[in-house]
Design a binder for these strands. Structure first.
Lengths: 185, 185
DNA sequence: GTCTATATCCAGATAGAC
DNA sequence: GTCTATCTGGATATAGAC
């Protein structure tokens, strides 16, 4: 069950929902194709579950960040550093963000998956906008619409994640200092 | 023929290669499904042609930028402004970048398409790195590895493009000034 | 050039034995 | 729980008439 999830994540993240065949997953695990249907009712069911997990994982990271006892500009530094660390060390994180990127960029995903994305994907933006506001009050974050700052922040972060994910042999991704320049005074 | 290309681009960009059915394209154009095969040998053929066109379009934009009679930091401003303008006005540009994003993020695309991407996608990074070097010599671009600066630049730009492409009702995307802060002194 | 009809294949899902 | 076998639908691609 957990193995099915893992293998499905790996394949959905790299190939997408439609190019991934149930047989591919079964073969990779060395089990019969029919056995998958003992655990899941359909391919879409696996997909929807994974999308939900992925969004929750992303959002819980953001929640933890919010709860940290740090000043706003320190939270941004922490977020960036955590991001750079995770992207270098966690295969699972890369697959997770890749899955979300694939899903968000496709209109041909199950209704339920779409609903989950719609419901959950704005959380990081709102949380970051709040941090920006607080930082502006303290004078450590640059002026400007906090929502736009938040969008710019996550757009850059996810752009980097995609860059990293789609190059097999990336030696180095840019230094965290560059990202910090985006919003900090 | 041109209509097939256009409709196929629209659908591949939003749904990907595998979720797009030949019949979907034919139906959208009001022609018979079989007729597509009068113009193209296979679905993959259409896809590969579109990928090639998309990459060329992107790269020709960059080439034009390079050829402009501007100082390096002005080129960066120009690139950002052109980008913001195009993303707001050109449906075709959004589809084009979405197609490339989809393709680059999937391992399940035709061999030929993969080869095209491998061959052509680094051009913008190299061109931008060169501009960064020149700007650093002039003192208008911040210090740091020019390759990393270039990666950061395009990661942010493409992150924004994806953000914009995947929200139907985006009112505003961040101001160009924010992006400029990334690299200019 | 465009259509209808169809051959062929493949993948999702089910049935039922062990 | 796991397998093999199979039903069923759908999609690519082809054939051939108009």
């Amino acid at each position: 069950m957990e193995q099915i999830r893992q293998e499905a994540l790996r394949q959905f993240a790299t190939k997408g929902l439609f190019a991934t065949k149930i047989k591919d997953i079964a073969d990779a695990l060395g089990i019969a194709q029919g056995l998958i249907y003992h655990y899941y009712q359909s391919k879409e069911d696996i997909y929807v579950e994974l999308i939900g997990n992925a969004l929750d994982k992303m959002n819980s990271g953001v929640s933890m960040l919010q709860a940290m006892d740090l000043r706003p500009h320190e939270k941004i530094r922490a977020a960036i550093e955590q991001f750079f660390y995770t992207i270098e060390t966690s295969e699972d994180y890369i697959q997770t963000s890749r899955l979300i990127a694939q899903a968000a960029n496709s209109v041909a995903i199950p209704e339920e998956a779409r609903a989950l994305i719609e419901e959950k994907r704005d959380m990081p933006y709102q949380a970051m906008a709040k941090i920006m506001v607080e930082g502006q009050r303290e004078g450590t974050i640059i002026d400007g619409d906090p929502n736009e700052l938040a969008i710019m922040f996550w757009a850059s972060v996810s752009g980097l994640a995609v860059y990293k994910a789609t190059r097999t042999n990336v030696q180095k991704i840019p230094d965290a200092q560059l990202l910090i320049r985006l919003s900090l005074k």
